[in-house]
Design a protein around this nucleic acid. Structure first.
Lengths: 205, 205
DNA sequence: GGGCAAAGCTAATGCCATTAGCATTTTCCC
DNA sequence: GGGAAAATGCTAATGGCATTAGCTTTGCCC
């Protein structure tokens, strides 16, 4: 038997091609093995289980998104950096919708993903540096940004926006919405949720 | 054999309890059957397949969210209505995180979900009535709102926010971010909104 | 009380993940 | 170069699950 010369990286790569073609649910060890030209149990030499393979796929996606986001942000600051980050993020999800669908949402819960999750969060916070945000405000701001991009992009990648209106235009308005909220200082801690809704009329410039 | 007296509704209800306890992946026909006190193949009298059961679960969640959102909005308008809608939406997701995880993202694609999806979208648009939005602007606004709530809430329900800062406060700022963007008229026609920040620099490739 | 549809059951099939144990290849050390 | 040791692959077997086929029983309607 000529040995195939598999490796964990090769297994993940094969699985990734299955993700791209048919989404996560099409990733079975049987399918990966067939595509790799190997019997199913042979995969266990490179991967502990189907579950681990899935986590490795999530890691790959997280790293890809982080790399693109980090690169997009370099040499920019303020609104420009935020926009570049969000655009790069969206570009990835549109280019690889099935990959984006397995973007891990809570990487800190998995030791395998934790470090990459830190790096990802680092990029988000780095982009906020130019705004004058206190520690807690920066956290709220990063969460807003993440919620907005992830929300838009996950819906879009899943085909969730049915109407014909231009999605580029919507996303541009999402970017504006986020950057405006970063420029607008929040009223510190005065009770009711949405209390700031009262203070209207900050026009973004 | 005393007949159990199952029905599609009862099967869905049983499956829903499994969702609450262990997430969607714990919903197997075998588990539902066991909990219902019936042999697995008996379920096929009430449900066409596991796939259909999953879609019925998604329908249920979509309807529950829509009901709560619709009720929250009644008798309110403007920022107040938007805040109430978003808060009710979040309240549902926090009360039933595993249910929210199966909230259908593209209901229009499934005949079973399409009508409920329309109703859901109807609530979103109804809430925007008080703002002076053109047709296209209303679509962009509804998408922003949906992206922001869904993004925040899906991340939160999945445990995606690891830092200790108060999530109620973050969500309040998300509401402010959205309402502010609704109050701020977008510059019409002369280039897309955010064209300056968003489009000025695209990262290579 | 007889018949009929609905609701349930058992048996069987096939796919999948996973484990155990065996064969073969590669590596690496001398 | 040669041989042990580790790494890589294989076949066989197990058990869970969804699904189908075909049979039995129940409940109801007249």
């Amino acid at each position: 038997m000529p040995r195939v010369g598999l490796s964990q990286a090769a297994v993940v790569e094969t699985a990734l091609s299955l993700v791209d073609e048919g989404g996560v649910e099409s990733v079975t060890l049987a399918a990966v093995a067939q595509r790799a030209g190997v019997a199913t149990p042979s995969l266990y030499r490179h991967v502990a289980s189907l579950g681990e393979l899935r986590r490795l796929l999530a890691l790959r996606v997280l790293d890809e998104v982080t790399d693109l986001a980090a690169e997009a942000v370099m040499g920019r600051s303020g609104d420009d950096a935020v926009a570049a980050l969000m655009l790069a993020y969206r570009r990835y999800a549109l280019a690889h919708p099935n990959r984006y669908a397995i973007m891990p949402v809570q990487p800190s819960a998995d030791p395998l993903l934790a470090a990459s999750g830190e790096r990802f969060m680092g990029v988000l916070f780095a982009v906020l540096r130019q705004y004058d945000l206190s520690g807690a405000e920066a956290v709220h701001a990063a969460r807003r940004m993440r919620a907005a991009v992830h929300g838009f992009v996950s819906l879009e990648a899943a085909g969730g926006f049915g109407l014909p209106e231009d999605l580029d235009a919507t996303f541009a308005s999402v970017i504006d919405m986020v950057t405006a909220s970063l420029r607008t200082p929040t009223t510190p801690a005065s009770g009711t949720p949405a209390s700031g809704a009262a203070m209207s009329g900050r026009t973004p410039s």
